[in-house]
Design a binder for these strands. Structure first.
Lengths: 112, 112
DNA sequence: AGCCTATATCGAAAGCTGTCAATATATGAG
DNA sequence: CTCATATATTGACAGCTTTCGATATAGGCT
């Protein structure tokens, strides 16, 4: 529908948040509230293919492999990433809709 | 250039984040990563005048006065709120540009 | 089968965060 | 000045998070 245009850009702010909605939204922002996870999203999104396996992400982040896996799990469970096996490797990919939905939540008067 | 129009709506994701930029951005999301703070933003933004004093926010949140003051301070220091004295009362107001800047960071290829 | 590599999970330590009661500060009224 | 009210600060505690090393799981190769 044509709602996407009107809900995206105007600098409004979320309204009428129920406690449950607030908790849900906060959980999403909490996932983005870590610099390592933001760098993971950034790194994965900037791959030419749009996908990256874990071993490609460890060195640029400067964290241990278990820690990187942990962050990827958090991002995956929040819906910011998809994962797909290819042999031994696991390829992660950003889900732009999830990112955008946060944007919409921030700028929409929460109608409908 | 005409970057503002092209960088706002498409569902892209942040790219080329330096560690320092990631930490800065994450700090902003961390502020939004708490349900009480989201409810505060929501409550203040939905006031007819656009402003609210602390005593109006305590009861709807169901938290103690010091806790509400604490969250308001966090939001204020991150640039999400302005505050203004009126007699004994302190009136807080949402800064829409701060909210929107996060949106832009999420959907922009980080050019310029 | 056995080995190697890639990823995930476990358990623990250190640090951060949300919350409150108690207290401090500040403004206005009398 | 004194009192009452509104807001901010302090100190402490409980719970959560980030991180790691150690270990487990899974897939491919010989």
């Amino acid at each position: 529908m044509s709602t996407t245009l009107t809900t995206c850009c105007p600098p409004l702010v979320l309204q009428h948040l129920s406690p449950a909605e607030a908790e849900q939204l906060a959980a999403m922002f909490r996932v983005l509230g870590d610099p390592s996870r933001l760098q993971l999203l950034s790194l994965i999104a900037s791959q030419p293919t749009g996908a990256a396996c874990v071993c490609e992400l460890i060195e640029p982040l400067g964290l241990s492999q278990p820690t990187v896996s942990h962050h990827l799990k958090v991002l995956f469970e929040a819906g910011f990433l998809t994962k797909e096996r290819r042999g031994t490797w696991m390829y992660y990919r950003v889900v732009p809709q999830t990112v955008q939905s946060l944007c919409v939540a921030l700028t929409t008067p929460a109608n409908e």
